[in-house]
Structure formats: C-alpha cells, structure tokens
Amino acid sequence: MEPNVGETDRTLRLAAGMLLGILGAIGALGQATFSPLIGVLLFIVGLVLLGTGFTRTCLLYRPLGIDTRTKR
C-alpha cells in the first residue's frame, strides 16, 4: 500500500497512540477512575494509532481521498 500519512500526522499519531495505550493499560488493570472497559477501548485505539503511524498508511483516509504527505 502507498503511504498517505505525512510527517506531522505521523508524529501526532505516534504520540497520541502512546498516551492512549498507556492510559488504556492503566485503566484495563483497574488502576484508573474510569471503567476497565473504557481502558480496553483506549488501549485498542492507541494500538491502531501506533500501527498507522508506523506504517504511514491510514485505511480510513483511502476512501475519503485524504493524503497528508507533502507533495514535491
């Protein structure tokens, strides 16, 4: 697949993915003020953001025709 995630988008995805993954793990273990189910959901969203950041490909961008890379 052709990459469609630019540098700024990638950096934000990786940072948000790490943050949500950590918060989700803490929540899933029952150590947060929110329910463990919300923790699991946050963890999954964090993993998706990390995956799209590392691969530089967002499957949701494809049907919407979005490409955040800079055109040279």
Rank of each mutant, 00 (worst) to 15 (best):
G53A: 13
M1V: 12
E2Y: 15
R10P: 11
L14T: 04
R10D: 12
G27R: 01
N4C: 14
P36F: 02
L59K: 07
L29A: 06
A25Q: 01
I44C: 12
K71A: 13
G17V: 05
A15G: 12
G30Q: 04
V40F: 15
G17R: 01
V40H: 10
I26A: 02
D67W: 09
I44P: 08
C58I: 06
L20E: 04
T11R: 14
D67F: 07
N4H: 15
T57E: 12
C58F: 09
E7G: 15
L20T: 03
R72Y: 09
L59P: 05
T8R: 15
T33I: 04
G51N: 15
I22R: 04
L19D: 05
C58V: 03
T70M: 11
R56C: 11
G30N: 02
I26E: 00
T57D: 08
I66C: 09
L59R: 09
A15W: 13
T8F: 15
A28V: 00
T8V: 14
R13N: 04
T57I: 09
I38V: 10
G65E: 03
M1I: 10
A28D: 00
R13G: 04
G27S: 00
L47K: 07
F34K: 02
L14R: 07
L12C: 14
L64P: 01
T52I: 11
M18I: 08
T52M: 08
T52D: 07
T8L: 15
G51K: 13
G65D: 05
T57A: 10
V45Q: 08
V5P: 04
A16G: 09
F34I: 01
T52K: 09
I38H: 04
G46A: 06
Y61I: 00
E2N: 15
L60S: 10
S35Q: 02
I44V: 13
G24Q: 00
T70Q: 14
F34Q: 00
T57N: 12
T8G: 13
G65Y: 06
I22D: 04
R13Y: 07
R69A: 07
M1P: 11
G17Y: 06
G39I: 00
G6L: 07
A15M: 10
